[in-house]
Computed example of a mutant assay.
Amino acid sequence: MTDNALPASLASARQRLEHALIDAGRPVNDASLLAVSKTKPASMIRQASALGQREFGENYLQEALDKQAELADLDDLVWHFIGPLQSNKTRAVAENFAWLHTIDRLKIAKRLSEQRPPHLAPLNVCLQVNISREPSKSGVMPEDVEALAQEVAALPGLKLRGLMAIPAPAESLAAQRQPLAEMRKLLSALQKALPDTPLDTLSMGMSDDLEAAVLEGATLVRLGTAIFGARNTT
Protein backbone atom coordinates (compact mmCIF):
# COMPACT_ATOMS: atom_id res chain seq x y z
CA MET A 1 0.00 0.00 0.00
CA THR A 2 1.19 3.52 -0.71
CA ASP A 3 0.98 6.30 1.84
CA ASN A 4 -1.65 7.91 -0.39
CA ALA A 5 -4.01 4.96 0.18
CA LEU A 6 -3.78 5.03 3.98
CA PRO A 7 -6.39 7.74 4.67
CA ALA A 8 -9.05 5.86 2.75
CA SER A 9 -8.19 2.46 4.24
CA LEU A 10 -8.14 3.78 7.80
CA ALA A 11 -11.46 5.54 7.26
CA SER A 12 -12.90 2.33 5.84
CA ALA A 13 -11.68 0.31 8.85
CA ARG A 14 -13.22 2.80 11.26
CA GLN A 15 -16.49 2.73 9.34
CA ARG A 16 -16.51 -1.06 9.36
CA LEU A 17 -16.07 -1.12 13.14
CA GLU A 18 -18.77 1.49 13.62
CA HIS A 19 -21.24 -0.45 11.45
CA ALA A 20 -20.46 -3.66 13.32
CA LEU A 21 -21.13 -1.95 16.65
CA ILE A 22 -24.42 -0.52 15.38
CA ASP A 23 -25.48 -3.92 14.05
CA ALA A 24 -24.66 -5.43 17.46
CA GLY A 25 -26.78 -2.83 19.22
CA ARG A 26 -23.75 -1.36 20.98
CA PRO A 27 -22.66 2.29 21.32
CA VAL A 28 -20.30 3.33 18.54
CA ASN A 29 -17.57 4.15 21.09
CA ASP A 30 -17.84 0.75 22.79
CA ALA A 31 -14.80 -0.75 21.03
CA SER A 32 -11.46 0.64 19.89
CA LEU A 33 -9.40 0.03 16.80
CA LEU A 34 -5.87 -1.26 17.34
CA ALA A 35 -3.82 -0.63 14.21
CA VAL A 36 -1.44 -3.59 13.80
CA SER A 37 1.62 -2.03 12.24
CA LYS A 38 4.07 -4.95 12.14
CA THR A 39 6.44 -4.88 9.14
CA LYS A 40 5.19 -1.40 8.22
CA PRO A 41 7.50 1.62 8.26
CA ALA A 42 7.38 4.28 10.94
CA SER A 43 6.32 6.76 8.26
CA MET A 44 2.97 4.99 7.93
CA ILE A 45 2.44 5.05 11.69
CA ARG A 46 3.22 8.77 11.65
CA GLN A 47 0.66 9.29 8.90
CA ALA A 48 -1.97 7.24 10.74
CA SER A 49 -1.26 9.29 13.85
CA ALA A 50 -1.89 12.48 11.90
CA LEU A 51 -5.26 10.97 10.96
CA GLY A 52 -6.14 10.51 14.62
CA GLN A 53 -5.05 6.90 15.25
CA ARG A 54 -3.37 6.58 18.63
CA GLU A 55 -3.14 2.85 19.44
CA PHE A 56 -0.68 0.65 17.57
CA GLY A 57 0.08 -3.06 17.91
CA GLU A 58 3.47 -4.61 17.23
CA ASN A 59 4.50 -8.29 17.11
CA TYR A 60 8.27 -8.08 16.75
CA LEU A 61 10.16 -6.47 19.58
CA GLN A 62 13.27 -5.05 17.91
CA GLU A 63 11.24 -3.69 15.02
CA ALA A 64 8.87 -2.04 17.47
CA LEU A 65 11.69 -0.49 19.51
CA ASP A 66 13.24 0.95 16.35
CA LYS A 67 9.92 2.53 15.39
CA GLN A 68 9.41 3.92 18.87
CA ALA A 69 12.81 5.60 18.68
CA GLU A 70 12.02 7.08 15.28
CA LEU A 71 8.64 8.33 16.49
CA ALA A 72 9.77 9.57 19.90
CA ASP A 73 8.39 13.03 19.18
CA LEU A 74 4.85 11.58 19.08
CA ASP A 75 4.41 11.24 22.81
CA ASP A 76 0.68 10.46 22.70
CA LEU A 77 0.98 7.11 20.91
CA VAL A 78 -0.13 4.03 22.86
CA TRP A 79 2.01 0.99 22.09
CA HIS A 80 0.63 -2.54 22.46
CA PHE A 81 2.86 -5.62 22.24
CA ILE A 82 0.74 -8.40 20.76
CA GLY A 83 3.32 -11.02 19.84
CA PRO A 84 4.64 -13.98 21.83
CA LEU A 85 7.10 -12.92 24.50
CA GLN A 86 10.20 -14.78 25.62
CA SER A 87 11.64 -14.43 29.11
CA ASN A 88 14.78 -12.69 27.89
CA LYS A 89 12.75 -9.91 26.28
CA THR A 90 10.41 -9.00 29.12
CA ARG A 91 12.42 -6.00 30.31
CA ALA A 92 12.17 -4.19 26.98
CA VAL A 93 8.41 -4.67 26.95
CA ALA A 94 8.07 -3.63 30.59
CA GLU A 95 10.01 -0.43 29.89
CA ASN A 96 8.58 0.59 26.51
CA PHE A 97 4.95 -0.50 26.14
CA ALA A 98 1.62 0.46 27.67
CA TRP A 99 -0.04 -2.89 26.92
CA LEU A 100 0.85 -6.55 26.54
CA HIS A 101 -1.80 -8.93 25.16
CA THR A 102 -0.05 -12.28 25.36
CA ILE A 103 0.50 -13.37 28.96
CA ASP A 104 0.00 -17.11 29.23
CA ARG A 105 2.21 -18.11 32.17
CA LEU A 106 3.03 -16.73 35.58
CA LYS A 107 6.81 -16.64 35.05
CA ILE A 108 6.48 -14.01 32.32
CA ALA A 109 4.00 -11.98 34.36
CA LYS A 110 6.29 -11.92 37.41
CA ARG A 111 9.26 -10.75 35.36
CA LEU A 112 7.21 -7.97 33.77
CA SER A 113 5.92 -6.83 37.15
CA GLU A 114 9.41 -6.73 38.64
CA GLN A 115 10.87 -4.94 35.61
CA ARG A 116 8.15 -2.29 35.16
CA PRO A 117 9.81 1.05 35.94
CA PRO A 118 8.30 2.63 39.08
CA HIS A 119 7.74 5.98 37.36
CA LEU A 120 5.39 4.35 34.84
CA ALA A 121 1.81 3.31 35.46
CA PRO A 122 1.33 -0.47 35.81
CA LEU A 123 1.55 -2.33 32.52
CA ASN A 124 -1.90 -3.14 31.14
CA VAL A 125 -2.05 -6.86 30.37
CA CYS A 126 -4.41 -9.41 28.89
CA LEU A 127 -4.22 -13.15 29.30
CA GLN A 128 -3.96 -14.94 25.97
CA VAL A 129 -6.44 -17.81 25.84
CA ASN A 130 -6.02 -20.78 23.48
CA ILE A 131 -9.75 -20.79 22.98
CA SER A 132 -9.69 -23.24 20.06
CA ARG A 133 -7.23 -25.55 21.86
CA GLU A 134 -4.79 -25.57 18.95
CA PRO A 135 -1.48 -27.33 19.69
CA SER A 136 0.40 -24.86 17.50
CA LYS A 137 -0.83 -21.76 19.34
CA SER A 138 0.22 -20.08 22.55
CA GLY A 139 -2.22 -19.31 25.29
CA VAL A 140 -3.59 -20.61 28.54
CA MET A 141 -6.33 -23.23 28.32
CA PRO A 142 -9.84 -21.96 29.17
CA GLU A 143 -10.10 -24.07 32.33
CA ASP A 144 -6.85 -22.55 33.65
CA VAL A 145 -7.73 -18.90 33.05
CA GLU A 146 -9.15 -18.09 36.48
CA ALA A 147 -6.19 -19.52 38.42
CA LEU A 148 -3.68 -17.56 36.33
CA ALA A 149 -5.81 -14.41 36.50
CA GLN A 150 -5.90 -14.54 40.30
CA GLU A 151 -2.09 -14.62 40.43
CA VAL A 152 -1.50 -11.99 37.73
CA ALA A 153 -4.03 -9.60 39.29
CA ALA A 154 -2.00 -9.62 42.51
CA LEU A 155 1.24 -8.46 40.86
CA PRO A 156 1.97 -4.79 41.67
CA GLY A 157 3.59 -3.81 38.37
CA LEU A 158 0.71 -5.07 36.23
CA LYS A 159 -2.90 -4.13 35.72
CA LEU A 160 -4.94 -7.08 34.50
CA ARG A 161 -7.45 -5.73 31.99
CA GLY A 162 -8.96 -8.81 30.36
CA LEU A 163 -8.50 -11.54 27.80
CA MET A 164 -7.15 -11.94 24.28
CA ALA A 165 -7.64 -14.72 21.74
CA ILE A 166 -6.91 -15.67 18.16
CA PRO A 167 -9.51 -18.38 17.39
CA ALA A 168 -9.03 -20.94 14.66
CA PRO A 169 -10.29 -19.67 11.28
CA ALA A 170 -13.93 -20.40 10.47
CA GLU A 171 -16.00 -19.68 7.39
CA SER A 172 -19.49 -18.82 8.60
CA LEU A 173 -20.48 -16.07 11.02
CA ALA A 174 -22.07 -18.63 13.32
CA ALA A 175 -18.91 -20.73 13.41
CA GLN A 176 -16.79 -17.66 14.04
CA ARG A 177 -19.01 -16.57 16.92
CA GLN A 178 -18.80 -19.86 18.83
CA PRO A 179 -15.26 -19.51 20.30
CA LEU A 180 -15.72 -15.76 20.68
CA ALA A 181 -18.86 -16.38 22.73
CA GLU A 182 -16.79 -18.66 24.95
CA MET A 183 -14.36 -15.79 25.44
CA ARG A 184 -17.20 -13.50 26.46
CA LYS A 185 -18.38 -16.05 29.02
CA LEU A 186 -14.84 -16.49 30.35
CA LEU A 187 -14.49 -12.75 30.90
CA SER A 188 -17.90 -12.58 32.59
CA ALA A 189 -16.88 -15.39 34.94
CA LEU A 190 -13.61 -13.62 35.71
CA GLN A 191 -15.42 -10.38 36.50
CA LYS A 192 -17.44 -12.25 39.13
CA ALA A 193 -14.38 -14.07 40.51
CA LEU A 194 -12.27 -10.89 40.72
CA PRO A 195 -14.78 -8.13 41.54
CA ASP A 196 -12.05 -5.67 42.57
CA THR A 197 -10.13 -5.97 39.29
CA PRO A 198 -11.19 -3.68 36.40
CA LEU A 199 -11.66 -6.39 33.78
CA ASP A 200 -12.99 -4.39 30.86
CA THR A 201 -11.11 -5.70 27.82
CA LEU A 202 -11.77 -8.39 25.25
CA SER A 203 -9.01 -8.19 22.66
CA MET A 204 -10.36 -10.22 19.77
CA GLY A 205 -11.41 -9.74 16.20
CA MET A 206 -9.23 -9.27 13.14
CA SER A 207 -9.89 -8.60 9.48
CA ASP A 208 -11.72 -11.88 8.86
CA ASP A 209 -13.88 -12.03 11.99
CA LEU A 210 -14.36 -8.45 13.18
CA GLU A 211 -18.15 -8.56 12.91
CA ALA A 212 -18.41 -11.82 14.85
CA ALA A 213 -16.09 -10.47 17.54
CA VAL A 214 -18.09 -7.27 17.97
CA LEU A 215 -21.30 -9.28 18.26
CA GLU A 216 -19.66 -11.17 21.13
CA GLY A 217 -18.45 -8.12 23.00
CA ALA A 218 -14.97 -7.33 21.70
CA THR A 219 -13.67 -4.04 23.06
CA LEU A 220 -10.37 -3.95 21.15
CA VAL A 221 -10.18 -5.20 17.57
CA ARG A 222 -6.84 -5.73 15.88
CA LEU A 223 -6.66 -4.73 12.21
CA GLY A 224 -3.48 -4.75 10.17
CA THR A 225 -3.94 -5.53 6.49
CA ALA A 226 -7.26 -3.67 6.34
CA ILE A 227 -5.45 -0.47 7.39
CA PHE A 228 -1.88 -0.78 6.12
CA GLY A 229 -2.20 -3.24 3.27
CA ALA A 230 -0.56 -6.65 2.88
CA ARG A 231 2.26 -7.44 5.26
CA ASN A 232 5.79 -6.81 4.02
CA THR A 233 7.68 -10.11 3.86
CA THR A 234 11.06 -8.95 2.65
Rank of each mutant, 00 (worst) to 15 (best):
77 L>P: 02
107 K>M: 10
144 D>H: 15
150 Q>F: 06
6 L>I: 12
147 A>T: 12
160 L>V: 08
1 M>I: 06
198 P>Y: 12
91 R>M: 02
24 A>T: 06
187 L>P: 09
183 M>C: 13
165 A>H: 09
37 S>N: 14
220 L>E: 10
85 L>K: 02
128 Q>C: 09
188 S>E: 14
210 L>K: 03
188 S>H: 05
51 L>D: 10
82 I>K: 03
175 A>F: 00
194 L>E: 05
229 G>F: 07
228 F>T: 12
87 S>C: 08
179 P>G: 09
6 L>E: 08
118 P>K: 11
82 I>G: 02
109 A>F: 01
96 N>M: 01
40 K>I: 00
34 L>C: 13
169 P>I: 13
10 L>D: 08
82 I>Q: 01
68 Q>M: 12
31 A>F: 02
212 A>K: 01
127 L>H: 02
58 E>P: 03
61 L>I: 01
92 A>D: 13
15 Q>G: 04
42 A>M: 01
194 L>Q: 04
57 G>T: 10
83 G>P: 04
87 S>Y: 02
188 S>T: 11
59 N>L: 07
22 I>M: 11
24 A>G: 10
179 P>A: 07
158 L>R: 04
60 Y>L: 06
48 A>C: 10
162 G>I: 04
55 E>Q: 15
34 L>P: 07
15 Q>L: 11
21 L>K: 05
153 A>I: 06
15 Q>Y: 00
5 A>F: 00
84 P>A: 09
233 T>K: 09
120 L>I: 04
78 V>P: 01
40 K>P: 05
152 V>Q: 03
5 A>C: 00
95 E>P: 00
165 A>C: 15
53 Q>S: 11
129 V>P: 08
203 S>T: 06
43 S>N: 10
176 Q>D: 13
181 A>P: 04
159 K>W: 03
199 L>K: 13
10 L>A: 04
165 A>Q: 07
183 M>Y: 08
191 Q>N: 01
84 P>K: 03
104 D>I: 11
183 M>A: 10
169 P>M: 14
209 D>F: 04
61 L>D: 01
10 L>E: 06
113 S>K: 05
3 D>A: 15
70 E>T: 07
44 M>Q: 15
88 N>V: 01
44 M>S: 13
39 T>V: 02
232 N>R: 14
207 S>Y: 05
219 T>V: 08
185 K>P: 00
222 R>E: 10
181 A>Q: 15
20 A>Q: 02
26 R>A: 15
26 R>T: 11
97 F>T: 01
180 L>T: 08
10 L>H: 06
30 D>R: 11
5 A>M: 00
138 S>I: 03
157 G>S: 09
83 G>A: 04
151 E>G: 05
216 E>P: 09
126 C>L: 12
127 L>E: 03
33 L>R: 08
107 K>P: 11
178 Q>H: 12
154 A>Q: 00
211 E>F: 00
163 L>A: 06
234 T>P: 14
85 L>N: 02
88 N>R: 14
169 P>Y: 13
107 K>I: 06
87 S>P: 07
6 L>S: 06
1 M>W: 04
207 S>D: 15
168 A>F: 07
93 V>E: 03
155 L>W: 02
134 E>G: 03
148 L>T: 05
2 T>G: 15
108 I>G: 07
109 A>S: 09
15 Q>H: 08
22 I>S: 13
11 A>F: 00
215 L>P: 01
50 A>K: 11
24 A>H: 04
